[in-house]
Nucleic acid binder design. Structure first.
Length: 874
RNA sequence: GGGCGAUUAGCUCAGUUGGUUCAGAGCACUUGGUUUACACCCAAGGGGUCGGGGGUUCGACUCCCUCAUCGCCCA
């Protein structure tokens, strides 16, 4: 079979993904094995794959594939969430381009359009994940708005309400005037903007003189109901108990006193607008102030404002200044940088607004969820996020769960005509409860009015680890097998949105944690550390990357730059490195595959020893990889396998066992080599699923249905550290010979003779066949005296000589030796100094002192040998 | 303003309870290479006062204090 010298990822990857699907290898059913469960952080149903998903899902797939190969029953549940506000915004926009206004549609008509959108876009992102190699159990694909998940949401709402944890109240909420809905605190992003600070004079009532306030939002003066000073501010003692006049509307408002006012900021006088600022609202409550809501839901001014009615708040901000100037109220205007809250979804400037919403009490649930993490019942990786989590949990506020949208789970609250309400999971139940409540058996559903609002999307996402197994359905018991899940992989930016709330839901509804480990990924940025965004155009299209470098290459590239939790600076060169590595593996395979076997050949000693060494090296690496995985150091684990393949296997092992050009190989060595290759491929499979499968299938005849993805992960047998250390010395000796060849321009194919002076008898002679082969030595002999007329080098106390007669330059050799001598002497001094320090010898552990003594002895021996060599050359 | 974290090679980062000459890895860089698997490669090499200062200790990248700079979260 002719194999191309460059690996072709495109053909390979589609072929094997299809094979895995056809063989149903991703599917999991409960059985007697230990489960390993991961739920996907559901991507937004309208979204497309971006680099963050690539990273996230690469890591999940690595964990899942590895668990599967370690004999666990791995189940990775995929799905999407309905992203109520984002999707609704997209649907509204599309309707707009079709000339349809949302306001003209009934709820059901609108939902029809929203489902159409979902049908069109919903599957895209999951199909893209397949290109990456994601080994999700696609039979289990869920959607937060499908039947089972919806029932879960409604069911839990009813339960939480029964427990008294859900309440309805008037609160200051974050209002998105574009989406016309409340959003949670976590959905507000603060942006730095250049704005102005306006200094405005208010006339004091009944006397000459003015009070100056400073504000960034002059239009809100129309809703002012007080001016506040700090009671300790001596500048304003004369104002106590007086009243001022709001400009333009000429409303008389009181001057109040409150410690909240920062005497340093602005003028020290603060205007209070309880309806439009959270702090003012609280102050309004304390001082019994009137609340004047001057804004309509869409951000225009309402009748209550009296002026500029119907105009947008930003327009008014511009227009009110000339009016104020005309009235003589503007003192000055300064440039000012401040942070403005914007909607994460629509980008609109958020208005704090009083409105009636549904809330979920957080205090009790947060306490349980906090303890779970602080005691490591749920482990965070990296652990530094525990602090962030604690801070949020200790300051948690009740969760505003209602949204004024159509696309989502409609709140199961039914109002009666008298304003009372019942909470029920369906219409029948609602009617039954209403009858009970009112003592009126004639009530029908027509007498009830269901709440118009829907629930926050996270009210379904937080149930995800339970709801994907239909865990609220008492007739289903799969949950008992799969829950709690094992690992959650997610971005650290949604630690509050999602992770915290899933932990709360886990304890609340299942009595235990939803997952054992949380692996937080960083944010993917470009090579200059900028966030990837559409505007900057600095985000590569993941599918293009896969086409160009292969999914394996991209996976490796993602990992090479991804310390846990830290931001990662993505650069194409990393995926290129991944692709190059795949090519390297491919070519190693080409080499092995190209060998002709001759069963009559005996195995060379070098191969026997090489195979023995490599088995220990492999075991050692497996140990290291296991350790890395146990600490969720995924990129370190990859780097260990990468180094094993590139350095140990390719550069050393294959060179040791490789037969001469166009010569056959013996059977035993070939078998062992294929075996070793097989093991490395299995170690590699979680990281590079496609190429590992491709080569694994070609390496030996496989039966239909066999796959590396369900092969057993190699296990550690024994590691002989001494043997490994001796091989390292052999490597040094080989490098010594290569250096001399290079210095003297002796080609590798030219044989040399090698003499060894084993000064202290420490040399492991079993490695000599390897040294002989890799040094291309015609003979290796042992001597008891220094060899003159030869080039030499030392490895520990062992001296190596290459007799080269006229090529030897005594001057140069002496210089080289003297440099080494200088270093050794310096080293000896530092060690001796340490050992002559009584406090060190008395206080340091015995082991440490022994090591230092050994170093001293080694250095002394080496110095002696070097000095003799120098004398010999002179 | 409150809190958290960081600062180690040109870049991105390791460095696990203080202890081998322990200052490391990958990339980048320099030099050399038509070695018959691979130039998507191989070999060799340069490069850091571990942010500054102080302290604890026989011993500090590691622990403590302080200063500086940066980042993130929250208000």
């Amino acid at each position: 079979m002719e194999l191309a010298s460059t690996y072709n990822s495109v053909e390979t990857e589609d072929k094997w993904y299809k094979y895995w699907m056809d063989q149903n290898l991703f599917h999991s059913e409960p059985d007697e094995r230990e489960p390993y469960t991961v739920v996907i952080p559901p991507p937004n149903v309208t979204g497309v794959l971006h680099m963050g998903h690539m990273l996230n899902n690469t890591i999940q797939d690595i964990l899942v594939r590895r668990a599967r190969m370690m004999g666990k029953n791995a189940c990775w549940v995929p799905g999407t969430d309905h992203a109520s506000i984002a999707t609704e915004a997209k649907v509204v926009n599309r309707l707009k381009t079709q000339g349809i206004d949302k306001a003209d549609l009934t709820r059901d008509e609108f939902l029809g359009h929203a489902w159409d959108w979902t049908e069109e876009h919903g599957g895209i992102i999951l199909e893209q994940l397949k290109k990456l190699g994601a080994s999700c159990d696609w039979d289990r694909t869920c959607f937060t708005l499908d039947k089972e998940r919806s029932e879960s949401v409604i069911d839990t709402f009813v339960k939480l309400h029964e427990k008294g944890l859900i309440y309805r109240g008037v609160r200051m909420v974050n209002w998105d005037p574009d989406a016309l809905t409340a959003v949670s605190d976590e959905e507000v992003v603060y942006k730095e903007v250049k704005s102005k600070l306006y200094y405005l004079n208010y006339n004091i009532e009944g006397e000459e003189g003015t009070v100056t306030i400073a504000t960034t939002r002059p239009e809100t003066i129309l809703g002012d109901t007080a001016v506040c000073i700090n009671p300790n501010d001596e500048r304003f003692t004369h104002l106590k108990g007086k009243r001022v006049i709001v400009p333009l509307v000429n409303r008389s408002i009181p001057i109040i006193e409150d410690d909240y006012v920062d005497m340093e900021f602005g003028t020290g006088c603060l205007k209070i607008t309880p309806a439009h600022d959270i702090n003012d609202y609280e102050m309004g409550m304390r001082h019994n102030l009137e609340s004047i809501d001057i804004l309509n839901d869409d951000g225009t001014l309402s009748e209550k404002a009296q002026l500029f009615v119907g105009k947008d708040r930003f327009v008014v901000r511009e227009e009110i200044i000339p009016e104020l100037q005309k009235a003589g109220n503007v003192l000055k205007i300064e440039d000012y940088d401040n942070k403005v809250g914007c909607s994460e979804r629509t980008g609109a400037v958020i208005e704090p607004k009083l409105s009636t919403q549904w809330f979920l009490k957080m205090t009790e649930m947060a306490k349980v969820a906090l303890d779970a993490v602080m005691t490591d019942e749920v482990q965070f990786h990296p652990a530094k996020f525990k602090n962030v989590y604690r801070h949020w949990m200790e300051n948690v506020k009740d969760w505003c769960i209602s949204r004024q949208l159509y696309w989502g789970h409609r709140i199961p609250v039914y109002y009666l005509e008298n304003g009372e309400f019942v909470v029920a999971k369906n219409d029948e139940e609602a009617v039954r409860l209403a009858k009970e409540k009112r003592g009126n058996d004639a009530l029908t559903i027509a007498d009830l009015r269901q709440e118009e609002d829907v629930l926050d999307t996270w009210a379904s996402s937080w149930l995800w680890p339970i709801s994907v197994f239909d865990g609220f359905n008492p007739e289903k018991n799969e949950i008992d097998y799969y829950y709690p899940t094992s690992d959650l992989v997610t971005g650290h930016d949604i630690i509050f949105f999602w992770v915290a709330r899933m932990i709360m839901a886990g304890y609340e509804f299942k009595g235990t944690f939803p997952f054992k480990n949380v692996y937080f990924t960083g944010m993917v940025r470009d090579d200059q550390g900028r966030k990837m965004s559409k505007q900057l155009g600095n985000s590569p299209d993941p599918l293009d990357l896969i086409a160009k470098y292969g999914a394996d290459g991209v996976r490796v590239g993602m990992l090479l730059c991804s310390p846990a939790g830290g931001d990662l600076l993505f650069d194409d060169s990393l995926t290129e490195q991944g692709r190059n590595f795949a090519n390297k593996i491919w070519n190693a395979f080409r080499l092995v595959k190209g060998w002709e076997v001759d069963s009559s050949l005996p195995q060379p000693d070098s191969a026997t020893k090489g195979i023995e060494w490599f088995s220990h090296k492999l075991n050692q690496t497996i140990e290291v990889v296991n350790d890395h995985f146990s600490k969720y150091r995924i990129s370190d684990a990859l780097m260990s396998v990468y180094t094993l393949f590139r350095d140990d296997f390719s550069s050393w092992y294959l060179e040791i066992v490789k037969p001469g050009y166009q010569q056959p190989i013996d059977e035993v060595t070939l078998k062992a080599t294929i075996d070793n290759f097989d093991k490395i491929l299995r170690l590699l499979h979680p990281f590079m699923p496609f190429i590992s499968e491709e080569i694994w299938q070609l390496l030996e005849p496989r039966k239909e249905g066999e796959s590396i993805m369900v092969a057993q992960m190699p296990e550690v047998t024994k590691v002989d550290e001494k043997l490994l250390a001796n091989f390292e010395l052999t490597k040094e000796a080989v490098a010594g010979v290569r250096n001399i060849r290079k210095q003297k321009n002796i080609a590798n194919k030219e044989v040399i003779a090698l003499s060894i002076l084993d000064n202290d008898g420490s040399l492991d002679k079993t490695f000599i066949p390897i040294l002989s082969k890799l040094a291309n030595a015609s003979e290796v002999n042992f001597v008891t005296e220094k060899v003159s007329g030869a080039l030499s080098f030392m490895v520990k106390a062992t001296e190596y000589y290459i007799p080269l007669g006229d090529l030897v330059d005594a001057e140069e050799e002496i210089k080289k030796l003297e440099e080494e001598l200088k270093y050794q002497k310096g080293f000896l001094i530092s060690v001796s100094k340490k050992l002559s320090n009584e406090r060190f010898v008395n206080n340091a552990p015995e082991k440490v002192v022994a090591i230092e003594k050994q170093k001293q002895a080694d250095a002394e021996a080496k110095i002696k040998a070097i000095e003799e060599s120098i004398a010999n050359l002179k």
